[in-house]
């Protein structure tokens, strides 16, 4: 199995350094990694750099393949990216928007594409939306369509930017369970999440960024500590196990 390596990555927006000399321990296939950290820590920027959507210096490789060296259409077969949201003003219907995600890079003929897209929509429980226009969907439904677009090419690396931000509770659970299944099929799955309770429940590994640098990385029980929450987020918090033995994060107050 081939993991993702991030070595000495720097990202600048103009004169501002967003990510500085960031190296991560290898992120393994089969695992769900959550990128966490306060606002402006560089989480989404790192995700976009891994997806080759933001210019960076350094090396980002999946197994032996340097992602920056792959041509766009080959990279699309390897990397799936789910943005925070899709445009709300599009009259495209869901089915053709996901077919476009498959065909724009030149993969598959139209009939193969249609059946594969329908299989993905069914897997995500949104087949009933297939003929709806994107502009008529709720934010949460658009987010599920965006996930369908990200996974339809069957990528080995799946990157998700706040994938649950517009989802109701049931769909959050469905999406995160799906991410675990996608990882279990041999993919590297990396998601930016703000909700540390969800991260504690669903992640194999949490990477905490602060000011564009690595603050901590490891299993949820190693990383999620009152000290880390106080230092990085500036909150007083407790991290306890519930009656079912699961890790729970409770935020009590902003740190004085």
């Amino acid at each position: 199995m081939s993991g993702l390596s991030v070595q000495d990555v720097n990202v600048r927006y103009g004169a501002r350094r967003v990510i500085e000399g960031l190296s991560l321990p290898e992120l393994h296939a089969g695992e769900v990694t959550v990128l966490a950290g306060p606002n402006a820590a560089g989480k989404s920027t790192l995700l976009r750099a891994i997806a080759q959507l933001a210019p960076y210096q350094g090396r980002i490789a999946l197994g032996d393949e340097d992602l920056a060296r792959l041509p766009a259409n080959r990279r699309a077969k390897v990397v799936g990216f789910m943005p925070q949201t899709l445009p709300s003003a599009s009259t495209l219907i869901v089915l053709e928007s996901v077919i476009a995600a498959l065909r724009a890079g030149g993969q598959l003929g139209i009939h193969d594409a249609e059946s594969r897209v329908m299989a993905v929509l069914e897997r995500l429980g949104i087949a009933d939306l297939a003929l709806e226009r994107l502009e008529q969907l709720s934010g949460g439904q658009r987010q599920m369509v965006s996930l369908a677009q990200a996974i339809v090419r069957d990528p080995r690396l799946l990157l998700l930017d706040e994938p649950t931000s517009a989802l109701d509770l049931a769909r959050q659970v469905r999406l995160l369970a799906e991410l675990r299944r996608l990882a279990a099929e041999g993919r590297v799955v990396i998601a930016v999440l703000h909700d540390l309770g969800l991260a504690a429940r669903w992640a194999d590994r949490i990477v905490v960024l602060e000011h564009g640098r690595l603050h901590a990385s490891g299993a949820p029980e190693q990383v999620l500590t009152p000290a880390m929450l106080a230092q990085v987020y500036g909150v007083e918090a407790r991290v306890e196990r519930c009656s079912m033995g699961r890790l729970t994060v409770m935020i009590d107050a902003e740190r004085a």
């Binding site: 976009r48 997806a51 080759q52 959507l53 766009a72 259409n73 080959r74 990279r75 699309a76 077969k77 990397v79 799936g80 990216f81 943005p83 899709l86 445009p87 599009s90 495209l92 053709e96 928007s97 077919i99 476009a100 995600a101 498959l102 065909r103 724009a104 890079g105 030149g106 993969q107 965006s146 677009q149 990200a150 090419r153």
Partner: peptide, 19 residues
């Protein structure tokens, strides 16, 4: 198809493999 993909935004189109 590439132009259709661009209706989802430039980043999405890029991630679909469009230059």
């Amino acid at each position: 198809w590439q132009l259709t993909a661009l209706r989802m935004g430039a980043d999405q189109a890029r991630s679909f493999g469009v230059n």
